[in-house]
């Protein structure tokens, strides 16, 4: 069975480590915050100027001056800090954020990513995505393995305008966990009850398959 959005987030959460500063993008990445293992501390960075993002507020706690990068009302976690956008992107550009999770339209075997622009459709802008992919050392991309028509999103070469070049090392899809290394995709794990054949058929770029491909584990 292909993973649903929540399950993809659960798998990404396994990439977290105690003491990590983490930036979560909009969409599935946001859901990762719900699955931080209880035995570790993780600090969420929001690029509009907050380190230490807490849960959504109660009705009584809502504060228009306290939002996340998705413009949602949020709260602060214990030990949080506020700062300007320049300071925020100094953290990102300077490589101080331990893990960035973001969505994409396409990823290719060289680790390039396209996530912000589909020609012919309205271009809304890249927001902070280009800064995040250029600045983070450790980036996990979440997306479906193929589009609705079945066409692969893990490509030899991205067809859409790029967000960044040669910057992605790991992709978690609804079907698999894939590492990008030496110009190839490497299959690390498959979703429960998803066959290697199905993953191969939905991966356009060269995919290296080890003798044994373990199923993802969920507690």
């Amino acid at each position: 069975m292909a993973l649903n959005r929540e399950q993809i987030a659960m798998r990404v959460a396994q990439e977290l480590r105690d003491g990590y500063y983490v930036n979560l993008g909009i969409g599935i990445p946001t859901l990762v915050a719900n699955y931080v293992p209880t035995n570790m501390q993780v600090m969420l960075q929001s690029e509009n100027g907050l380190l230490g993002m807490g849960p959504f507020p109660t009705e009584a706690e809502i504060d228009a001056d306290l939002i996340n990068a998705g413009k949602q009302t949020v709260t602060t976690a214990t030990g949080a800090a506020f700062f300007s956008s320049a300071e925020s992107f100094a953290m990102i550009r300077g490589g101080h954020v331990d893990l960035t999770v973001l969505g994409a339209f396409e990823v290719d075997v060289n680790g390039s990513i396209a996530s912000w622009m589909v020609p012919g459709k309205l271009v809304k802008g890249m927001g902070g995505a280009m800064d995040l992919v250029a600045g983070a050392q450790n980036i996990v991309v979440t997306m479906t393995h193929a589009d609705k028509s079945g066409a692969s999103k893990l490509l030899k070469q991205c067809s859409l305008p790029l967000t960044g070049v040669k910057c992605i090392k790991k992709v978690v899809t609804d079907l698999a966990v894939v590492e990008i290394r030496n110009g190839k995709f490497h299959l690390l794990e498959r979703a429960p009850d998803v066959s290697v054949e199905e993953i191969v058929s939905k991966t356009e770029g060269e995919l290296v398959i080890p003798a044994h491909v373990p199923e993802m584990k969920f507690d």
Partner: peptide, 11 residues
């Protein structure tokens, strides 16, 4: 101080 995405959790 208009809010774009009013998101809340239950108290």
């Amino acid at each position: 101080k208009r809010i774009e995405q009013r998101t809340v959790r239950k108290a």
